[in-house]
Design a protein around this nucleic acid. Structure first.
Lengths: 141, 141
DNA sequence: ATGCAAATGATAATCGTTCTCATTTGCGAT
DNA sequence: ATCGCAAATGAGAACGATTATCATTTGCAT
């Protein structure tokens, strides 16, 4: 069990709600979760943390670099464990499933485009919205 | 004056609020505007349309293909005239300025990535968030 | 064990957006 | 022109996601 170290390293004291949220992400049950998702999953497993706390903790984890926040279409933001390596996303419009990808060529071209125009990139988001043509895509997640 | 034709072609009857919103976009004052931006600019120029109407009209124009909607970070959506040619965006984090770009190589790679994984692209959004290094970037727009 | 700053949770508040519904308007038929 | 009515509007309520408030609880250094 190394979660407390993660929190300590991030300058956050290890409290019950923070440990629960972190281990939910580390459990790998769902890689991409909204605040609502986290809240409901915790409730379902008998741990009751307040919704406000979930929001606070997610934001703190994002600032601490433990989680990455994504703004997908539809308004609500989604979080995932920060595993160091940047990647982009394909979101299935049918089932909401999120798949990750990385393409060095795309990354390189973005850098060139930005610098050609006098910008220095701080962040970027490439979201592909698509229909997955596989049959394991029946329902909304 | 050809706005009424645009509306007619889109199957929308030409009403005062719709014409005002459309000509605001066509005036080129601001290329990218949120509902709030449109509402305030119209009020400022003496035309008072209701906020609800602005939202409705923007959504209708999007559905009719007259406008394109973008979901940038920060939650609120932003609209721009649909000029047929797809492009992506660089958003300056300092001044909020939005610059457009198109890169055939990036487009092609996206297609390949998606089809390799069994997805068919319906839409995509590539947003680069950056600092523009030029001096004409003093303030928040 | 003790104290206190930091964290929590219930609730109110906020923000962008959509809905409701009574009133107004565009426009085809007269 | 003008009548009639479906469609559109506007004011305000409602809504969903998120943030702020604040009294109570908790982690943890002493």
């Amino acid at each position: 069990m190394h979660q407390p170290e993660h929190l300590k390293n991030a300058g956050l004291k290890s409290t019950v709600p923070r440990l629960k949220v972190l281990s939910l992400f580390e459990s790998g049950t769902e890689r991409h979760m909204s605040a609502e998702d986290v809240y409901k999953l915790l409730l379902a497993s008998g741990d009751d943390v307040g919704l406000a706390t979930v929001y606070r903790v997610l934001t703190q984890f994002e600032q601490a670099g433990l989680l990455v926040r994504h703004y997908f279409e539809g308004g609500k933001s989604v979080f995932e464990l920060n595993q160091g390596k940047h990647h982009d996303h394909i979101v299935c419009l049918q089932c909401g499933r999120v798949e990750e990808f990385y393409d060095a060529g795309i990354e390189a071209r973005q850098e060139k485009i930005a610098s050609d125009r006098g910008f220095s990139i701080r962040d970027h988001a490439l979201h592909i919205y698509a229909d997955c043509t596989k049959k394991q895509c029946p329902h909304k997640v």
